[in-house]
């Protein structure tokens, strides 16, 4: 039951989307998000949608998986859409009590829902096609210049990769501890809110203890292999841009430019 949680799940593959450098993918995702927020007309939204569809097609990710990712945020999407529907001033189409539905409201609500959905599907496409390790590598490399400002970029990305690495382990462990306590009659499903909170103690204490133990062991293992931070550390898989990266990034830049131009002319 706990295993059903997916956090930026990665679907391994060999498509063009999988083979792109993680840095290019992060950059084009950012460009895509900027484009979404600049898009104001049917034409530019159409362009953004076409881009997303192309991305999905190229990556070979099942569209169903992307739509499933929308479920947890469905509420937020509906909420913003409804707010926009009622509170956008403009030409009134229908009115009852304090609510007014305007023509502009309908457009804004529709575009807002579209924008959020596409934003989420776009970012999911990134995490579906990029392994967590590649993602942190890419981030570390992109944020590299911040090292000059004494931001501990390497340490942050190392922390992130370790956290990602241990999520499945800890979920499995939680499952096991829960079963063991249930075998001794622990009851997590009934009683008042306070009872239920108290029932978590027999899970949380062993879980924290084991997390600290694991952290300790990992630290010793890293020190045994002479880990001393990012200084002078080289990588097994060096990130390198290929022709495909320049091509895809160029295409995205061109599309962003055209969206901006369209917005400038009020289209």
């Amino acid at each position: 039951m706990l295993k059903d949680i997916t956090l930026g799940q990665f679907f391994p593959g060999t498509s063009l989307a999988h083979r792109l450098d993680p840095r290019s993918k992060i950059i084009i995702t950012v460009v895509y998000i900027v484009g979404l927020f600049c898009a104001e007309s049917f034409v530019s939204y159409g362009l953004m949608a076409a881009l997303l569809v192309t991305g999905v097609k190229v990556s070979g990710v099942a569209p169903k998986a992307l739509v499933k990712g929308l479920k947890p945020v469905l509420f937020i999407i509906c909420f913003t859409a409804v707010l926009n529907l009622f509170y956008t001033p403009g030409e009134i189409l229908a009115q009852f009590w304090v609510f007014k539905i305007t023509k502009e409201g309908i457009f804004t609500a529709f575009f807002m829902a579209l924008r959020i959905s596409m934003l989420i599907m776009g970012t999911f496409l990134l995490t579906y096609t990029t392994s967590p390790i590649a993602l942190t590598d890419g981030l570390e490399s992109l944020l590299g210049p911040l090292k000059k400002m004494k931001v501990p970029v390497h340490e942050l990305s190392m922390m992130m990769s370790i956290a990602l690495r241990f999520i499945p382990t800890l979920i499995e462990e939680t499952d096991k501890i829960m079963s063991a306590q249930k075998a001794r009659g622990a009851d997590f499903e009934s009683g008042s809110l306070l009872d239920r909170a108290k029932a978590l103690v027999p899970i949380l204490v062993p879980l924290f203890i084991s997390a600290f133990r694991r952290a300790d062991e990992l630290a010793v293992a890293m020190e045994c292999r002479c880990y001393h931070g990012g200084e002078g550390r080289t990588k097994l898989h060096v990130l390198r841009y290929h022709a495909r990266d320049y091509l895809v990034m160029g295409a995205y830049a061109a599309i962003l430019a055209s969206v901006l131009t369209l917005a400038h002319f009020g289209l």
């Binding site: 462990e173 096991k176 501890i177 063991a180 249930k182 075998a183 027999p202 203890i209 084991s210």
Partner: peptide
């Protein structure tokens, strides 16, 4: 569960 007592593998991690 009270009638069939189950001791898990490595049960010391549940203390």
């Amino acid at each position: 569960r009270f009638q069939v007592g189950l001791v898990f593998q490595y049960p010391e991690y549940q203390l």
